[in-house]
Design a protein around this nucleic acid. Structure first.
Lengths: 227, 227
DNA sequence: GACCAAATTTGAACATGTTCAGATGTTAGG
DNA sequence: CCTAACATCTGAACATGTTCAAATTTGGTC
């Protein structure tokens, strides 16, 4: 309550602009929608839109956060009722696809900036680390206390699942099959394989390899060892 | 010789523009370089640049093709002298990194459009399928007739290596370590693992799973079964 | 109510990718 | 040489993301 008391109609503008923008993105695509379109559809001037969102890509960032929160929420519900690892993972993935199913065009248009290395909207960027952390946590929750995955392997496994999920989404955005059936099949097939293969890494034969993988990723800075 | 006889100074312009453009990209980045910069540095008008390259991204496409040819060439040389699978794969990967080592800034700037689904410059697009096919062929050559990889598994393995190589490049472009040491380590570590794990998929225990993977990818259209 | 500072909005610029109608040069045939 | 057809190039537009100084509104304070 120091200086943060004022936001009477302010934040409402922000939400309003974001809704209008996402609607236009879905309808006309990302490139097909102009910042001037957004501003005028929202009943504001161009400059006002830039007051709330410093760039067109900032709208994408806001979309990320919104989706991630919604997904975490949806996943939380599904996780409670699922008895085993495989079905929990399936629930998480399918919940995401259900949620994004009508946004494929939007996602496709956005994709270019979500994989870049420099871009602030990159899935790997500092700016999106919050969203990323939450997403990985959702997978960690899905793993739960399943005994087939040794406890110390769970963070690594969660991260691997997140990476797999990125790959699946990459496929998904261009999947024009009925109800995204091909993506669903790919999701289920991948998860079947993963659930069969993952426990093998705990077996005597492949056990040491797990440490090798973890070390490799840690040296590359791709995986932060917990405490 | 029907109507294609004229190109006295013509194609030279094209090459000249491309060289100038790549130089500027390396020096000032992709976004930092303006089509007007390119045109004036090449001693031409803006329109002339657009006569030869219909868009800024077209310059990127030309860069792809040029790099891929150079890499295939470099790899071919290295392959002949390497006795075993592991060293051949290492030669291919390291040749690529050597070749791109000074273009990291350029690649980073370009990356955004190389992973998009719609973009013509996407590594997955129709427009780049030639380059992609050649790149996968290079890996196929590296596998050669190594007995640890069953013959019918080689196309799939080659494609997997190409995908791994994409991931490694994604890491590479942002790797600021001395002489890209971290990337080199990641390359070697990944290849060690791959060479250890791949033969397992031919073992009795995991053999059936190989077919499962192939079927999964084929149904998704991600892997074209040969003949 | 008058007034101040911060929050919000405006409108006019600017930079840059792209397009295009026309100018200019080049080649082949007469 | 002259001319038609084509290749190449030019310069001026246009569209759109972004910036910014200034105007306006808002909420609290005297």
């Amino acid at each position: 309550m120091t200086t943060r008391k004022r936001r009477p109609s302010g934040e409402a503008s922000r939400e309003h602009i974001l809704s209008i923008a996402l609607g236009l993105f879905r309808e006309k695509g990302f490139d097909g929608t102009t910042m001037r379109d957004i501003a005028s559809a929202a009943g504001l001037s161009l400059g006002a839109a830039y007051y709330w969102f410093p760039s067109k890509e900032a709208l994408v960032l806001a979309y990320y956060a919104r989706q991630q929160d919604a997904h975490a929420e949806a996943a939380r519900g599904a996780l409670e009722t699922m008895p085993d690892l495989r079905s929990r993972l399936g629930a998480v993935m399918h919940a995401k696809i259900d949620m994004l199913k009508d946004d494929r065009k939007l996602l496709r248009a956005i994709l270019r900036s979500t994989l870049g290395a420099d871009e602030p909207t990159s899935v790997f960027s500092e700016e999106t680390s919050d969203v990323r952390r939450k997403a990985i946590a959702t997978f960690h929750d899905a793993i739960g206390k399943d005994e087939s995955i040794p406890e110390d392997a769970r963070p690594l496994f969660a991260q691997a699942l997140w990476t797999l999920h990125l790959g699946l989404l990459l496929y998904f955005v261009s999947d024009t099959s009925e109800d995204q059936g091909k993506t669903r099949a790919l999701v289920d097939g991948s998860l079947d394989l993963v659930c069969k293969l993952a426990p093998l890494l705990a077996s005597p034969m492949l056990g040491p390899m797990r440490a090798e993988i973890a070390a490799l990723l840690q040296n590359a800075g791709l995986f932060a060892a917990k405490k």
